[in-house]
Design a protein around this nucleic acid. Structure first.
Lengths: 240, 240
DNA sequence: CGCTGACTTGACAATATTCAACAGTAGTGG
DNA sequence: CCACTACTGTTGAATATTGTCAAGTCAGCG
């Protein structure tokens, strides 16, 4: 169930078999969710985290005006609200995109394992820091890239991240976000997302049909996105 | 020298006097810098972090097109590239805005103290997670707020953060960013920043004169910014 | 079969950018 | 001390990108 999660971790740093056992024991109750639920509300007091095992989640913030900004997209293997372990209250909602399931991990259990396995504290600290790095690249997109470049970047990033956990089929991957949700992520309107997506199709860069994306011209897509995957930190390092 | 840093930490969680001693001992060499230096380049291998003791730094990313996005603004007391402790290579540059100084802290020293004082591991993990929270609020600004709202939000945030470390004088604070740098942070052009700043002045919300900002109408400014400081996590919590 | 939500299109408007020019200030070197 | 340069801030006019509003199609679902 948490094999994708271990794949993600092992890509970035070595995990001993002892540590693997401990991580596998972390998982308590599994909670299933339906699409479009808010699993955690901003400000709520937390005593556990959610390791996403199936389906997609997003972090999102609402504005008084009713607008919503999606701040991060989570795929299976992601420890979606691990930052809540130290923050204790999130500054954003955790909402589901699809049906799916999370493995619940109590903060107490986490505290225990990092006490006994200090290396895992670094592993998970690294994990939240990589999340933040992804967030910075998104801010770069929102600040400097055009609509078409942002959208291309989104597709490049998700393909790379899904590939790590084995959820791609060649250049194709499931992509369950509606155009409204893409708009909320890219900071654009639905209308403009629709037109921009058509432009990507017209240029022969991607295809999209029933909730899946196929990258037709990777070079072209990466060029328009100015995609450089180094911010994903897809290489191994030695911690402490 | 690192009193502001301790103020910041103590606002969020309790630090024992023993821990304080350990933190004070962390500081090794102090490095002074001039304005507009790049202290750390993206991708560079790191074996130490920088605790900002004087002056302002920014995290920034360059695009092939030559555009620059400022992703975070750092003020004295900030452990500016603490995330580099686990990442080992930053995905962005660390650049100076003003003259100033950083206290250098080797990764080895950090690894030692968190091994001996596991609570401090949580304290600094929290610290990077709060940085990420500030980054998310910025992404919300870039994605959903208008130019004037973003700029108002920037001033509200900086006043709140500077107040924590005792760098405000009532509603006034030093603000050394040029309009070009503000533009790079807000994802706007210099021209538009200039006009937007004039609008804030015309509405009687802020004054700005020789590198300092005075908030003239806090309610009004916060309203236009939709400012809600909860993302700054300015409250105490118990870690582990 | 009638809803509802997702997607699509057209016409128009607002926000922000681009380009070009100029004033003020500080720093530099002759 | 002054001329020179470079940077910062400012303004106007034209343009581009993206948003708004309104309407309509299509598919899935109870």
């Amino acid at each position: 169930m948490i094999t994708p999660h271990l794949k993600k971790l092992r890509l970035r740093t070595d995990i001993s078999s002892e540590e693997e056992r401990v991580i596998r024991d972390l998982v308590g109750e599994v909670r299933r969710f339906k699409a479009d639920e808010v699993l955690v509300h901003a400000g709520e007091e937390l005593d556990r985290c959610m390791l996403l095992v199936e389906g997609w989640l997003v972090r999102s913030k609402d504005l008084p005006s009713g607008e919503r900004q999606v701040l991060e997209i989570h795929i299976p293997g992601d420890f979606a609200d691990l930052h809540g372990f130290t923050l204790k209250r999130l500054d954003h909602d955790m909402a589901s995109v699809t049906d799916g399931a999370v493995a619940l991990v109590s903060h107490a259990a986490l505290a225990n394992i990092i006490e006994e396995h200090p290396h895992l504290a670094l592993v998970y600290w690294l994990s939240t820091n990589i999340d933040a790095s992804v967030g910075r690249e998104m801010a770069l997109s929102l600040g400097q890239r055009s609509a078409i470049s942002r959208m291309a970047h989104l597709f490049c990033e998700l393909h790379a991240r899904l590939k790590v956990v084995g959820e791609t089929r060649g250049d194709t991957f499931d992509f369950p976000l509606t155009q409204r949700e893409i708009a909320e992520y890219l900071g654009l309107t639905v209308v403009h997302v629709n037109r921009t997506l058509q432009e990507l199709r017209r240029k022969g860069l991607v295809e999209s049909e029933n909730r899946a994306i196929t990258i037709r011209d990777r070079r072209g897509l990466e060029a328009i996105a100015e995609f450089d995957p180094s911010y994903l930190h897809l290489e191994k390092r030695v911690l402490a």
